[in-house]
């Protein structure tokens, strides 16, 4: 897996060198990643593509600090992720990474505002600041008038924008987006076409972050 970028890049955010990941499935050892090296800088858009079973999801989990590699080096903003324990990983995910899941994974019984506030709660930010930040981001994705609606009261596109707002609210170093295969084929363009991201793009938000689009088999 490699990538080319023609844009000017910022400082190194993700530095992966020769990581592997093995899963034990019964008696068999599945080697999901066999020595991946990857560098991602600030301001880069990266799409990770590959056939089914090629390890995209596994790599995504590594990049998102949801899992640690079996071997190899992973530095996130200069910090060694491979050695971190669960709670340290949780802190990295909370402050440095914004997730936009394919199914959005919004909390069904919470309003848009509460959904967007969630990462800030885990970051220990006080209620007033929290609400202020969440309102601002929701405004930026064009959902200022949908803040008190629950996910089932929103359209698919609006839900996605809530998910994007939730990913942006903590001002992370990297945003990870998982998309369908056919969309991933044109990852960058698609990302722009998706209504939520277009709103933020116009607001001048997106260019500040790198985006790794990873397709799922």
């Amino acid at each position: 897996m490699n990538h080319n970028s023609t844009r000017p890049v910022g400082p190194l955010v993700i530095d992966i060198e020769n990581i592997t990941k093995d899963y034990v499935m019964g008696e068999e050892i599945v080697r999901a990643l066999r020595g991946v090296s990857l560098q991602i800088h600030r301001n880069e858009y990266i799409a990770i593509m590959g056939p089914s079973g090629s390890g995209k999801s596994t790599l995504m989990n590594m990049l998102g600090c949801l899992d640690t590699p079996t071997s190899g080096r992973y530095e996130f903003n200069g910090r060694n992720v491979a050695e971190m324990d669960d709670d340290e990983l949780a802190a990295i995910r909370n402050r440095e990474i914004g997730f936009v899941f394919q199914t959005f994974n919004l909390l069904p019984r919470s309003t848009s505002l509460r959904n967007v506030e969630l990462p800030l709660i885990y970051a220990g930010i006080d209620p007033e600041t929290r609400e202020e930040m969440a309102v601002r981001v929701l405004d930026e994705v064009g959902l200022g008038d949908r803040m008190n609606h629950k996910p089932n009261e929103l359209s698919g596109g609006q839900r996605q924008r809530v998910a994007v707002a939730r990913a942006l609210v903590n001002n992370p170093s990297i945003i990870l987006v998982t998309h369908e295969r056919d969309i991933a084929a044109h990852a960058r363009r698609t990302v722009h076409l998706r209504d939520g991201l277009i709103e933020t793009d116009h607001a001048g938000f997106i260019p500040e972050v790198d985006l790794v689009a990873l397709d799922r088999p």
Binding site: G64, L66, D86, D87, A90, A91, R93, N94, R95, F99, F101, N105, L107, L118, P119, Y122, A123, R166, N170
Partner: peptide, 16 residues
Amino acid sequence: TKEIGTRKALGARRRT
């Protein structure tokens, strides 16, 4: 379970 996963991805620690 999925909600727990989401919460953890968003930074919820074990204690939380």
